[in-house]
């Protein structure tokens, strides 16, 4: 097992390394002002980002990005639960939501500059606005997709609405929410950079732009490289969190696709009937995202 995994790691490193070496060889030969050799870019990367500019530029960037992303996720999930549960409201708001979703956030930069000024809030607003829609729409879809039988069951046992939302609806919608949140994360990182191109006084995107304007091309590439690494790291982190939180889901369905709550419940009902005195408890437990069945777990390669 471990040896196979190491092999995978090595294999995954081959192409990036080949690309880097290929670029370096080409750049050394070409001597193009705008495409400096890798060693020069690497030197600049070490000078700037290990770790001189981390507190002055990287952390403010990440702070704004995470703030905007957090607002988008919280707002998106909350509003999505509401709209997913109340079909009339969703129908009424649909045109407005579709319109707002279609607005490209960068087009709102002038507006946000006017409303929020040139400070952090304009940038956080832009990031939150762009990242909101995938979370919101996926949550709505996820909530609508909750198995009707489970809902009826919860109702007939008079489970309070708050518990029903938290323990039945939310866990069932979670796979879709995570799918939306992952899309939103990459959007948030893009908008982090875009929002720093106008009216910023710090940040990685701002640094890249200043370097470009100052014809400090290696520094520009070093910043670009950092942005790529940041995006890569955040995605990896997200996947790790998702894998942990949705372990029950991947384990029960055997694939990373659409949520199939029904099957998961049936499966889990069987192995421990003695531990579950009432059917209510079964529903609650199985819908919970917490301690899940470790059995039948599928290797990660199947994830999309």
């Amino acid at each position: 097992m471990i040896r196979a995994r190491l092999g995978d790691w090595a294999l995954a490193l081959v192409v990036p390394l080949l690309l880097l070496v290929g670029y370096d060889l080409w750049a050394r030969g070409a001597g193009d002002f705008f495409f400096p050799p890798l060693s020069v870019i690497g030197g600049n990367f070490a000078d700037d980002w290990l770790f001189e500019r981390v507190p002055t530029d990287l952390l403010p960037s990440l702070g704004r990005m995470l703030a905007g992303y957090a607002i988008a996720v919280v707002l998106g999930v909350a509003a999505g639960m509401l709209l997913g549960s109340l079909r009339t409201l969703a129908t009424a708001l649909d045109p407005v939501l579709q319109f707002l979703r279609a607005l490209p956030p960068p087009a709102l930069i002038p507006v946000s500059l006017l409303v929020f000024g040139a400070g952090d809030s304009a940038k956080v607003f832009l990031i939150a606005l762009g990242a909101l829609w995938p979370v919101l729409l996926n949550t709505v879809d996820g909530v609508r997709g909750v198995d009707q039988t489970a809902m009826d069951m919860a109702r007939s046992y008079r489970i309070p609405t708050s518990a029903r939302l938290l323990r039945v609806v939310l866990p069932a919608a979670l796979p879709r929410i995570f799918a939306g949140a992952r899309t939103a994360l990459s959007i948030a990182i893009i908008l982090m950079v875009v929002s720093e191109l106008v009216g910023a006084s710090n940040g990685v995107g701002h640094t890249v732009q200043l370097a470009q304007r100052g014809f400090n091309i290696p520094e520009m590439w070093a910043g670009t490289l950092l942005l790529g690494l940041v995006g890569f790291a955040f995605n990896a982190l997200f996947v790790a969190v998702e894998r942990r939180v949705l372990r029950w889901h991947h384990g029960s369905t055997g694939r990373g696709g659409a949520p199939t709550v029904r099957r998961s419940r049936l499966r889990r009902e069987r192995p421990r009937p003695a531990l579950t005195p009432t059917r209510t408890a079964v529903v609650l437990e199985s819908a919970d995202a917490g301690p899940a069945t470790p059995d039948g777990r599928v290797p990660d390669a199947r994830r999309p």
Partner: peptide, 17 residues
Amino acid sequence: LVEIPFPDMPAAIESGD
């Protein structure tokens, strides 16, 4: 120093930003 495009500057000054 804050970077603001010329067209947006009068509004930023007027609003006290």
